[in-house]
């Protein structure tokens, strides 16, 4: 029986601000899971802290609202113990690029088969609008006392440097494209990173929905807004790595970095990079532990009905035995 969107909703009151970009991401995740017909118990949504961290409570799947910055190690631990779970990690830009940046970088080099969704709004909303690591130098959003004194981290180029094998940028008001990106990210074999431009209507009065939509720059000829965001797939861009040889990788890396850096009047959104030529962490583990994929840690029976352990350590003890 196909899942309905309502099957993925909970009755928890959603306390995000009206007009929050988070709603677009929430809808896109629920639509993706429904379209993929992933039953709620097969999915675990992990999150960090902040407004976006509340997202699991609104989704009717296993929902693990973790600590600030730590969403990835939680998600990776759960996935590696049971690779049959569909694991989605969600967190804000402060979570992923600030307090959890070390985890974000190190997750990239492992390539565990999870989908990491990062909400990028340039501010720490829940603590009243401080600058986040993705806010550009010199910008002064509403609640800052002066212009931002730090340079911004670019999530896309950092993801590229860290080794993510699927890198995309979405926009929370383009739910249709976002849903497709999330579906692809879940289906991707390896670590998928989706950075989502997601305006904070309360604290980021610069990178607003209107700004992304180009309401401030109308075509003199037609009088229509000229949106800053555009879908890259509509420009015939091919994100895939085909052979995986060094030349191809280098060229693609440059393209992705260049796309990632376009955050001004032309902001490409869509899938920038997809590389399935690199083995996942689970596959690497399976090379060492032949039973791993069949009986991963969470599925191993460790004892009999009376609690008797099944592991036989007598050979190890004999190695230490001196008689």
């Amino acid at each position: 029986m196909a899942l309905k969107l309502t099957d993925l909703k909970t009755s928890v009151h959603n306390d995000w601000c009206p007009g929050c970009g988070d709603f677009g991401v929430l809808n896109a995740i629920q639509m993706s899971l429904a379209e993929m017909d992933l039953e709620p118990h097969r999915v675990a949504v992990f999150s960090g802290i902040g407004c976006s961290g509340k997202i699991p409570h609104y989704i009717n799947t296993y929902g693990i609202h973790t600590l600030h910055g730590r969403v990835l190690p939680y998600a990776i631990g759960a996935k590696l113990a049971d690779p049959s779970l569909e694991v989605i990690a969600a967190g804000g830009d402060g979570d992923g690029m600030g307090i959890g940046a070390g985890h974000m970088v190190n997750a990239g080099r492992r390539n565990v088969d999870i989908c990491y969704i990062m909400f990028d709004n340039g501010v720490y909303g829940l603590t009243k609008g401080q600058a986040s690591p993705t806010l550009s130098l010199g910008l002064k959003t509403k609640s800052l006392s002066g212009p931002n004194i730090n340079e911004a981290i670019n999530p896309i180029t950092l993801a590229m440097a860290s080794g993510y094998t699927f890198i995309a940028r979405g926009y929370s008001y383009d739910v249709r494209q976002l849903k497709e990106l999330i579906k692809k990210g879940i289906n991707h074999r390896g670590s998928a990173f989706i950075s989502i431009l997601q305006p904070c209507p309360t604290y980021n009065d610069i990178n607003t929905m209107e700004w992304h939509g180009g309401q401030d720059r109308k075509d003199p000829a037609t009088g229509k807004a000229m949106p800053r965001v555009y879908r890259i797939e509509e420009k015939g861009y091919d994100p895939s790595i085909h052979s995986g040889d060094a030349d191809e990788l280098n060229k693609k890396m440059q393209e992705v970095n260049s796309l990632g850096n376009q955050l001004g009047d032309e902001i490409p959104i869509g899938l920038f990079y997809s590389n399935e030529t690199i083995p996942t962490y689970e596959e690497r583990v399976a090379e060492r532990l032949p039973n791993y994929l069949k009986t991963p840690p969470a599925k191993q029976q460790v004892s009999g009905p009376s609690g008797e352990p099944v592991a036989d350590i007598s050979a190890l003890l004999d190695n230490l035995c001196m008689t």
């Binding site: 675990a44 992990f46 693990i64 973790t66 600590l67 730590r70 190690p73 939680y74 998600a75 990776i76 631990g77 759960a78 996935k79 590696l80 113990a81 049971d82 779970l85 991963p296 840690p297 969470a298 599925k299 191993q300 460790v302």
Partner: peptide
């Protein structure tokens, strides 16, 4: 936190 994640999945 990875150990906690693994415990949630059911591994000791």
């Amino acid at each position: 936190t990875a150990a906690i994640g693994a415990a949630l999945s059911g591994a000791r």
